[in-house]
Structure formats: structure tokens, C-alpha cells
Design a protein around this nucleic acid. Structure first.
Lengths: 198, 198
DNA sequence: GTCTATAGTAGGATAGAC
DNA sequence: GTCTATCCTACTATAGAC
């Protein structure tokens, strides 16, 4: 939405990925069309195919870019807090904001259909988890328990974001920050539970 | 998938809704096409439009049917358990199974785009919540806390189901029942948390 | 109530010019 | 590397016959 100055002068590929993320943010994964991405970057419908053989390849590239953006947001969230519990809560907030803003999150990054034979996407996904794992480990002390905590906490945060996007929570919690806080509360509850049984 | 005997002999409408749910179950909301639903019920592409003016109307009908099916499942889950905590856990399991089986849940039933001006869908959604609310009330004793618990617990269950569908959890928890158990665990953790602070 | 036929739209993808 | 032109496919929706 910001600077779209001298695109398609050497960096159409990046411009297309940006447009793809925009389209996904507006109407979800399925709404991504190569033609529309081309339109938005000011090139012909055929131009993208020089950079992405199929629609799936553009989608994959968008997923990788999303992973990179998410890593940035999560790292910032970790840095904002001091104790592990707060760090986890902050990443929960960050994740909720990310999913609501981009209309996609771990579901896109770890999409089973996209991952088939794509090493770069698998690597990007791993990078995301590598931000969260140490935080969870600091809380549980145990690797198995950390994965368990991570799984539950991502599920909760993702569910909150997904239900907000659909409209289910609009009545009770219309604001993004409210949703983010709720996810952080679950994170806190899970952190406490891990402290007892871990 | 079962009995498709003498359809389109008086009940094409129902057959189309069944087909619509099948399509959604297979490839998600966006994959629902009137043409394909017609094909599956053995009628021409034009036939559905006698029963549903637009694709959106078929989708709405499918959402209402989904709500009815979910109510049935949730009621059965409540009946399976005795104490409120177990009841909530059982409904969490039931919800996860439902979403994974139908590729849709509260997100479809409460979809903001579908609800515009549809009283029947709003009513169907309310019916779902009316199954869960008493259970939550039994746990918290307080209406506000009950809604809070309900919100958190549905978010967690929905997130688990959604992440499983996308493929994110396939590595660690490939089985539906494993996912259902995990959601039940969160439900239990939230029930305990509600007991402390509610 | 269902059919055939059809109009209109939109997207994925390729061929060949520049 | 991008363009124009084109093909093919699939879907929504309508008109009019039966």
C-alpha cells in the first residue's frame, strides 16, 4: 500500500510477492490470482510466468516471505519482554496481530500442499519455530514439554485469530488488541500449567 | 458418501446441501461450486438455481445444516460426560472432530459475510452456543466468566483443528484423536484456571 | 422442477513478437 | 523480460423449452 515507485524495473519478482501477500491479506489464500497480482504491479498477465512457472510457485514464494516477516515480528516480540512467560505472551500477541493483518500464518507457512518438495519453505518454517522453541524451553526446561507447550499455545493463538477473521468474535471482542490480549492470557495459563506439571 | 438412491425426486434441495457440505469437507469453503454440487447430485447445472438464487444462498443453507449437525454432536458429547469439566472437554473433542471432518466449524456458521440479513443462520448459530453456555456456566457460576471461558476454549479447539487441517501438526500429531485429546487438555487447563480466578 | 443452450466473466497458461 | 494475442477451462447465472 505504500511505496510503489519504480517497480518492474528489475524487481518484478519481489513486487509480485508483495502483491500476492496483499491479495491474501484482503481475501484469503484462495483469492490469490496471478492475473490480479500482475494487474496490481502494472504488468501484463503473462509477465509473472517468467518468474513463477505456476500459481502454486507464486503462492510458495508468498509463504516464504510471510515466514520471514513473521520471524521478524516474533523476534521483536521476544525482545520486548524480559522473563520467558512474558516473552511467550508477547509472541502470542504478535502472532495474532500477524495472522489478522496478513490473513495467514502458520497455516500458510506449513501448508501441506505447498511444502511438497520445497526445501526453502521448509527451511523458512523451521526458522519460525526456532524463534519460539528457546522461549518455550526456558519455561519448561524439557524439550518434550516445550514442544507440547508450543503446540498448545500456537493452536490457541491461531484459533483466536482465525475466529476473529471469520467474524465469530466480532460481537464480544471486535478489536485486534483485545484478541491479542486474550491469546496472551491463554499463553499465561499454559505457562502456569507447564510450571506445575512440567 | 452413503445412500444416494432416489435423490432429485422431490428433495433436490436437501441433496444439494449435502453435496455442498461434501465439497466443503473436501476442499474448503471456497471450493464450493454450484455447478459441482449439481454434478454430484446428478442434475444439470441450472437446476440448483430453482432452489438457491445464488451461490451464497447455497452456502448459507450449508452453514445452517452444519450448525444443526454440530448441535447434535455437541449434545451427544455433553451427554457422554457427568461433571461439567468433563463435559467441556468432551465437547472440545467433538468440536475438533467436527471441524476436521467437515473442514468447517464456527468460522462457517458465524461467517460475517454469510450472516448479513440471514435470520435463520443467526438462529442456528445461537443454538450452537446454547448447548455450550450451560456447561460453561456450571463451571464458572458467573455469566461473564462463562463467556470468557467459552471464547478461550472454542479458540483453542478451533485453532487445533485448523492447524491440523493445514498440515502444521501433521508431524507431531497426525491422528485426529490425538488432536482431539490435546484440545481437551486445553479445555481442562482453562477449567482449572476458571476455578481459581472465577 | 428440471432440461438444454447460452451469455458473460475470469483465471491459468502458452506462443511468438519485440 | 515483458508484451500482445490466444486457447482452454470452469464457474455463475439467465432464457426458454418441456
Amino acid at each position: 500500500m505504500a511505496t510503489r515507485a519504480k517497480y518492474h524495473h528489475g524487481d518484478l519478482r519481489t513486487a509480485l510477492v508483495d502483491a500476492a501477500l496483499e491479495l491474501i491479506a484482503e481475501h484469503g489464500l484462495e483469492a490469490l490470482s496471478v492475473a490480479e497480482a500482475a494487474r496490481r504491479t502494472g504488468v501484463s498477465a503473462a509477465a509473472p510466468y517468467r518468474h513463477f512457472p505456476t500459481r502454486g510457485d507464486l503462492l510458495r514464494a508468498a509463504a516464504i516471505r510471510a515466514a520471514e516477516l513473521l520471524v521478524t515480528d516474533l523476534r521483536a516480540a521476544v525482545a520486548r519482554a524480559t522473563c520467558p512467560g512474558e516473552q511467550l505472551a508477547e509472541t502470542a500477541r504478535a502472532y495474532v496481530r500477524f495472522v489478522i493483518e496478513h490473513h495467514a500464518g502458520l497455516d500458510l507457512i506449513f501448508d501441506a500442499r505447498l511444502r511438497v518438495g520445497d526445501q526453502a519453505l521448509a527451511e523458512a518454517g523451521r526458522a519460525v519455530m526456532n524463534v519460539l522453541l528457546p522461549v518455550a524451553m526456558d519455561i519448561t526446561g524439557d524439550a518434550h514439554a516445550a514442544l507440547d507447550l508450543l503446540e498448545k499455545y500456537t493452536a490457541a493463538a491461531h484459533g483466536y485469530a482465525a475466529l476473529h477473521l471469520s467474524g465469530f468474535l466480532r460481537g464480544r471482542a471486535p478489536e485486534v488488541e483485545t484478541i491479542a490480549d486474550r491469546a496472551a492470557e491463554i499463553s499465561a495459563a499454559l505457562t502456569r500449567a507447564a510450571g506445575h506439571s512440567g
